[in-house]
Write a protein that binds this DNA or RNA. Structure first.
Length: 190
DNA sequence: TAGCTGATTGACT
DNA sequence: GTCAATCAGCTAA
């Protein structure tokens, strides 16, 4: 059973932390790929200058809608990034999924990536994980509580520690500590 | 219409 | 450490 809608109807920070350890599942016909979420970043509303809610009008409707939907966009002209919308309707916020620990469909991931079946690098990075799970702009607005792209609760006890720090790869609001990852995980991006 | 920027990656020095 | 690839959507004019 995927995480229920109410899981996402909370502030982006809380959702970002609680998504760690959960499992992202992508079904593409007979092919199923899945990975444990090990790294996330929270993005807020207009007060967060790095958030697309602040400067990307095309995404505003999604950001301000209810949580539990996917926001996929193309950036640098070649990489897709996957976000989960967080917060109640009218409350903007989202969580960028930055890295996964592959748990199913490793062969399919390697084929899509065009690299050796090295679990450690298959989905370590926002652009890498979308390619590994074959996530494209078609998945924008997809419902994460049902359908072909879902997020399941942790498949094992939370025996990890959560670390946090400044977000990476952005040029605005660099000082905010909104990046979360599983301490010691070998699958986080560099 | 032209020019720019970016929540990135991988290849190269 | 630097740098190119490549494009949606914004900005200026």
């Amino acid at each position: 059973m995927p995480l229920p809608r109410r899981f996402y109807l909370r502030p982006a920070r809380a959702v970002a932390r609680d998504l760690l350890g959960c499992v992202l599942v992508a079904r593409r016909g007979p092919t199923l790929t899945a990975g444990r979420i090990v790294e996330t970043e929270a993005y807020l509303g207009p007060e967060d200058a790095a958030s697309h809610a602040a400067f990307r009008p095309g995404s505003r409707a999604l950001f301000y809608g209810a949580g539990g939907y996917a926001y996929v966009y193309l950036n640098y002209g070649m990489h897709h990034c996957l976000n989960a919308i967080a917060g109640r309707a009218g409350r903007p916020g989202c969580v960028l999924i930055r890295a996964l620990e592959p748990v199913a469909g490793l062969g399919a991931m390697a084929r899509r990536r065009g690299v050796a079946q090295d679990a450690r690098r298959l989905a370590s990075g926002p652009g890498n994980l979308t390619r590994a799970l074959a996530i494209t702009a078609r998945d924008n607005r997809a419902d994460l509580t049902a359908g072909r792209l879902t997020i399941e609760p942790p498949d094992r006890p939370r025996d990890f520690r959560i670390a946090s720090g400044p977000r990476v790869g952005i040029t605005r609001s660099v000082d905010l500590r909104l990046r979360y990852w599983i301490a010691g995980s070998r699958f986080v991006s560099r």
